[in-house]
Design a protein around this nucleic acid. Structure first.
Lengths: 233, 233
DNA sequence: TAGTGGTCTAGACCACCGG
DNA sequence: CGGTGGTCTAGACCACTAT
């Protein structure tokens, strides 16, 4: 057994990662099989396996049965985003959270909304517009459609007191979620509601959720000017 | 042993997740200890452990030694972003990739750039501006600063043929990466270079990387109008 | 088909932390 | 201090796939 006696999977991982960082193994290179690494490092194969899974999850190496392990030939940046419910996000900034229901109706969803659910047939849904506030100032403007077939209970919730965001997250967990981000120019209406200059560039988060193939809701959240999205550190 | 004979960790995970989805356990609720779940489901404790780690990584449950496992009281959306190098992103869209070096100089980095590295002392760095093209049309405009103390080799690379993006990713892997996203309005210069309307809303990706506390590079990538960022499905 | 990573087990011990 | 999750091991078997 080598002199180096550190056997924890994080140590193994760091040693392998180190060998990649210092150029011992370069993008596309093949690494030894787990068994050999285990023997060389003096640990069990399952410990190497644990380390390798971490590197694989991080997108640093690629593993294939029979094919072995290789350093990703096309390196990529993989990052994790945590998006809390808006109330909590505001409170964690140290601000006072506020909420305002702007509009509520039952309506036939436009095709653009149906498309987010990958559905062609338009259907009646609950349409809600609401404003989230931080320290009395507009923070996020949300435009939401809720599928009343999947979530009929939403119809009896008083959305003037509690945001649909909050009610759903505590009462209707989802099993799948699509996210997309892009930028828009504030039109006159959005500018007024977000207290922004007309034409201001705003970051938009679009989120659509399902439970087992059944659509739950889709939201377009327009953020206030200057809003930034960070990755989890 | 119970009649249900499915023992794989994904099955165990799905059964636990299912119990959360159907409301058996609600946000904040405590789950049984691993040992009990293992016995109830007829598998080894380490299999439950594997399933729980997955749910924990996904942000669905929280686990603490002695404290046990509970459904996250404040549910959040956790998503993973994969950001490939730009050439590959363009090619995967089925477009032809092009690249153009706009500007290259050695200069003292402005304070705003130093701040991204959490450094107060300004220093001389390599400053590069470049344009990535898809099918001959502007795709991403990048404004990059490379730390020549950490990566002196960059000075001898011909950046008119190969983007710094590409060279770095294949030659200088990083150990830490910060990402942020926001929207800006195109000023006259950006509008011209990206072939966008002045004032157009553009999504910006800012990325800063280190290797073991040593700064490597920081980039501000301004995307063309209409660019969208998706989560990994 | 053979070689590699992936899973599962049973058991031991460790590390953290709530009571 | 005791209870819980986290790790590590050795070994067996499985599943995918390159050759």
């Amino acid at each position: 057994m080598p002199a180096d006696l550190r056997h924890s999977w994080t140590d193994i991982r760091d040693r392998i990662h180190g060998a990649i960082l210092n150029g011992t193994y370069r993008p596309g290179d093949k690494l030894p099989r787990d068994e050999d690494i285990a023997q060389q490092m003096g640990c069990a194969r399952s410990t190497v396996q644990r380390a390798m899974r971490d590197l694989s999850d991080a997108g640093i190496v690629e593993r294939k049965r029979k094919g072995g392990t290789q350093v990703r030939a096309d390196p990529l940046t993989r990052a994790t985003l945590d998006i809390p419910i808006t109330r909590r996000e505001v409170e964690q900034r140290g601000s006072v959270y506020g909420y305002q229901l702007l509009h509520r109706e039952i309506a036939v969803a436009p095709l653009s909304v149906g498309a987010r659910f990958a559905r062609r047939d338009p259907s009646r849904m609950l349409h809600v517009e609401a404003l989230h506030l931080a320290d009395q100032r507009p923070y996020i403007l949300e435009d939401r459609w809720v599928c009343t077939d999947t979530v009929p209970e939403i119809l009896s919730v008083d959305l003037s007191r509690q945001s649909a965001n909050e009610w759903l997250v505590h009462n209707k967990p989802y099993s799948r979620c699509d996210l997309r981000f892009y930028a828009i120019e504030a039109d006159a209406r959005i500018a007024r509601q977000l207290d922004a200059a007309p034409g201001a560039a705003l970051l938009v988060m679009e989120r659509t959720t399902w439970i087992e193939d059944a659509p739950i809701t889709t939201v377009r959240a327009v953020t206030r000017p200057g809003y930034q999205l960070f990755t989890r550190s």
